[in-house]
Amino acid sequence: MDTREQGGASSELVTRDEDGNLPDRFENPGPPPHRYRLADTDPKAAKNAERQVAALFGISILGTIFAIVAYFLFTPENTFASIKLSNTTLGLGLGLALLGIGLGAIHWAKTLMPDHEMTEMRHPMRGTDEDRTKALEVLETGAAESGIGRRPLVRNTLLGALALVGLPGIVLLRDLGPLPKDSLTKTLWAKGVRLTRDPDGKPIKAADVTRGSIFHVIPQGLNESERPLEEKAKAAVLVIRMDPNMIQEKDPAREGWDVDGIFAYSLICTHVGCPVALYEQQTHHLLCPCHQSTYDATQYCKVIFGPAKRALPQLPIAIDDEGYLVAQSDFKEPVGPSFWERG
């Protein structure tokens, strides 16, 4: 339709009231005319839809049978392929069984059930004034009958009792776990404890640690200790060997903590405790795979990137009479993530 032709017909576009005035806002024109579906007007289409729905339900039946047959037919053996076959066929059968019902029901509703939209009135959420007055009266009567307003002693002691009654529930939780005490500051490392390979506990000779190597290390006797996982979560150490001259600024306090360029550092990230195990032997950077805190072994594992703040604690090591690496002492500071009392 051409706007030019329409130009004179603006009165058709906007409805005026009897006085010929325009309303402030447009008025809701009411529901649009209904459009009929093929199946509403054409019995053939309806019959077709009926067949399609039935076919979908039929597929569901076949799917169910297939799933049951697959359960017994494709029993997993000791191979991945058989497990995969069992999983795929079972799931396929189940999926078809479910989809058949679902798609069939929806198709039925869409094509064959009435699709005239209906209208129903809403009621405001707010109660009528009468309801509200009555409700208030009931509440007031209840309050008055209980005497909660007149007897403050009863009310206040009740409030006090209610406020306190939950406390035993909290106190009962006390035995969820022991108090930390000094457990976060102690590990299995002590003077003379040998550095051994993770996981088999074989001791490591200083000569074994060649340049460019990394050893994942646990303290000797860890696997036999009472709680190996908890101990390992604190005591795990990595050992690397580098040219001692690579150290950028020598720290006199750490003099003698390494054995001829063999350094031992805590494996546990000082951020949130992941194992910092990614060692780049060319740059001597250690990367934590969880949040990318990067430590530089040429600066005593100072943080050079990422969210961690503190350097990885260094374990002072020495060499024993048989040539094995041993700890000089425990770590000089708590290992792992920060905690309030850490200081």
């Binding site: 490591i204 000779k205 000569a207 074994d208 640690v209 060649t210 340049r211 460019g212 190597s213 990394i214 690397i240 060692y279 780049e280 032997q281 060319q282 740059t283």
Partner: peptide, 8 residues
């Protein structure tokens, strides 16, 4: 970047 894993 890979470290060495010697026979020891």
């Amino acid at each position: 970047s890979m470290p060495v894993f010697n026979d020891a």
